[in-house]
């Protein structure tokens, strides 16, 4: 007896023998753009800022942990957030940031979600009231104002999706022109974690009467702190 898998694959093979597919011009299947000299960091930063601002995101510039912490504390105060969940400091690439935040009275809640179904529910539920999530980013994309977040040890998914406010602290050298450029540079990146997400702006919907509204499921506010 054959399996459903074998029957489906068999049916595909039968069909491919007589498939009436249009003749294609088989060039290289990769993107259309030809790699050009990477623009200067400042040009990329300007393009990234313009793109993200147009999407209702906010871009800040800072240097050093104290400067970044001041900005983040301001954002937390504005949104009445007393605690945050975050990536580990090594993954944020801003040495001293967590200590600087703690010194300013903003405390980090750590977590490791259980695989036990019952415990998992109460653990995630306990994180539901946290008002702020802080992450780094693997890359920032000038073309669409996007942040590339790669999950892994110390780089959880929840800080960028669960709280109503997301702050990403990103070194300027992580700016890239576009996703296509990044994938050319690192062909295996998109499978580099169990979850890779490109975040371009705060959560939004226009499902009701085409009226743009922010923060329907993901964060309503997205801030990026570009580090010199």
């Amino acid at each position: 007896m054959t399996s459903p898998r074998d029957r489906i694959l068999g049916s595909i093979r039968d069909s491919l023998l007589r498939a009436q597919l249009p003749a294609e011009h088989h060039g290289p299947a990769a993107g259309p753009e030809i790699p050009v000299a990477t623009p200067a960091t400042e040009a990329l930063a300007a393009q990234f800022s313009a793109a993200l601002t147009a999407l209702a995101g906010h871009v800040h510039r800072a240097s050093g942990a104290a400067g970044a912490a001041d900005i983040i504390v301001g954002i937390a105060r504005e949104n009445r957030a007393a605690a945050f969940i975050s990536w580990d400091e090594a993954a944020i690439e801003c040495p001293g940031l967590l200590a600087a935040l703690a010194a300013r009275g903003l405390s980090r809640v750590t977590y490791d979600v259980s695989s036990d179904a019952g415990r998992r529910l109460s653990e995630v539920d306990a994180l539901a009231g946290i008002g702020l999530g802080i992450t780094g980013a693997h890359a920032a994309l000038a073309e669409n104002g996007g942040l590339v977040l790669v999950s892994g040890p110390g780089r959880g998914r929840l800080p960028s999706i669960l709280p109503p406010v997301h702050v990403a602290v990103v070194a300027e050298r992580r700016l890239r022109p576009s996703l296509a450029d990044l994938v050319r540079e690192e062909p295996r990146l998109l499978a580099g974690g169990s979850n890779v997400v490109i975040v371009a702006g705060p959560s939004r919907t226009a499902d009701i009467e085409m009226t743009l509204t922010h923060g329907v499921h993901g964060p309503k506010h997205l801030h990026v702190v570009l580090m010199a």
Partner: peptide, 11 residues
């Protein structure tokens, strides 16, 4: 849109 807000890749 240039891209959707969340391009979510699961491996």
């Amino acid at each position: 849109q240039v891209s959707s807000v969340y391009t979510n890749i699961v491996t």
